[in-house]
Amino acid sequence: MEILLRKAGPTDYPFLAETIINAEKSGGQTLTYTTIFGIAEEKAKDYIIQMLDEEIEHCEFSAEAFLIAESDGKAVGAVCCWIEAADGIASSILKGNLLRHTLPKDNFEKAIRLGPIISELHMEYEAGSIQVGLVYVTEAARGKGLVKRLLDGKISELRTGDQHVYIQVFGNNAAAIRAYEKYGFATVAQKTAIHPEINAYMPSDTKLLMKLNTATGYEPI
């Protein structure tokens, strides 16, 4: 299988939206767009494509943050990484601005009462660090070392010094946690929400912060 790594363009947006939805589900069925905002999956994809189209940099909806793995002209994997607060604004704020700009008002008004429940799981991102938003490989292309190639490629592009590299992952996503550990990430912090309703809205009541051991974990290319 010949693999080409390349930047993402507008024709990739539907695929990127799929990878974002997949990451949001965190290996389960709970989709926060549906549970928090009352938006069905197909409609959520449309909104994600609209947000990618805004070309806002340095957050999880930034097309420039993605690197695509392509085989026979077809996207088979993607990684999303950015430099946190590169322009002085936290990625979670950019994300909030984009969601608010894009989602219908009724949908986020519904979500307002959930603020205190959801924010229990919020973990601060370290300004200047490299944040991995997601890594995704299609089922057919798994087991071929693509997670490593994608991460090596994107981290090499962003890393200019000795920045830390982090990923936040929900505690239920055992397969993802294993893959990140295999690459060289280790859990350095975790947060568990105590609100009894948390599992109705989020894929898990626990979030892990994993940090990459850059001495052994990644091979610059």
């Binding site: 909030g96 205190p116 300004a127």
Partner: peptide
Amino acid sequence: ASDVDGWDSLTHMILIS
């Protein structure tokens, strides 16, 4: 945002509204 615990994307949306 980093000075206030709980200032995440959803709370930010509420704040701006």
